[in-house]
């Protein structure tokens, strides 16, 4: 595994990439002479990513530097997971909630950008100001166009397309700025994206 995948790098395709590289890949169960309970090998597997031995039931690699998500053990039934102890059920619930939250956060460009800012300790705060005036004029103008075109489908579609294009443009800018690690500009563009999403939601 290349070293950069050890840390959780957030990119636009991070979620897909992370999940699509997971292929079932069990290396356990060679010895037929022993019963499963006697054989410690059956209770362990090797991490698909770093090859460290880990528990078969592990959801993430237990190696402290790898921590990569693991495939699902095909020998496990739903009952194994969900009728186990209360503790196991709770943890299963927490894992799935956490992963769902991660997925939802990263799939949307705005929440992804805000999350990246949080990781960089540069969250957008309530009392933050700024944004350049020309951009605010544009936003105000688009809001007013939406308001005045109520009922007129044609002009709504036009405004919607303008906003969509701007969102794509800002999202592309963010990818580039992320690659350049330009946190300050990333912050500014995220704010612009926030205004645009707000506009989109008002239609």
């Amino acid at each position: 595994m290349p070293s950069n995948s050890r840390t959780f790098k957030v990119t636009h395709s991070a979620v897909n990439a992370k999940f699509s590289t997971i292929t079932p890949h069990f290396k356990a169960g060679e010895t037929a002479s022993k019963t499963p309970k006697d054989c410690p090998k059956l209770l362990t597997m090797n991490c698909w990513s770093c090859d460290s031995p880990i528990k078969r039931s592990a959801i993430f690699c237990q190696s402290s530097y790898c921590k990569t998500i693991q495939p699902i053990d095909p020998t496990k039934s739903y009952f194994d997971v969900l009728t186990g102890s209360k503790k196991i059920q709770n943890y299963a619930q927490m894992q799935s909630t956490w992963l769902n939250k991660a997925y939802d956060t990263l799939k949307n460009p705005l929440s992804r950008a805000k999350y990246i800012l949080k990781l960089k300790s540069k969250d957008i705060k309530e009392e933050d100001k700024a944004t350049d005036n020309d951009f605010l004029f544009l936003i105000m103008d688009l809001h007013e166009q939406i308001e005045s075109s109520s009922g007129d489908d044609k002009s709504i579609v036009q405004v919607k397309n303008i906003i969509k294009d701007l969102i794509s443009e800002k999202t592309a800018n963010l990818s580039l700025l992320f690659a350049q690690n330009n946190v300050n500009e990333f912050y500014n563009k995220t704010i612009e994206l926030q205004y645009l999403y707000r506009l989109m939601n008002s239609i």
């Binding site: 957008i124 605010l136 205004y195």
Partner: peptide
């Protein structure tokens, strides 16, 4: 005067 709230996207003129 044109101002905006970056955190929520509100705009005020």
């Amino acid at each position: 005067g044109l101002v905006g709230a970056p955190a929520c996207g509100d705009v005020m003129r």
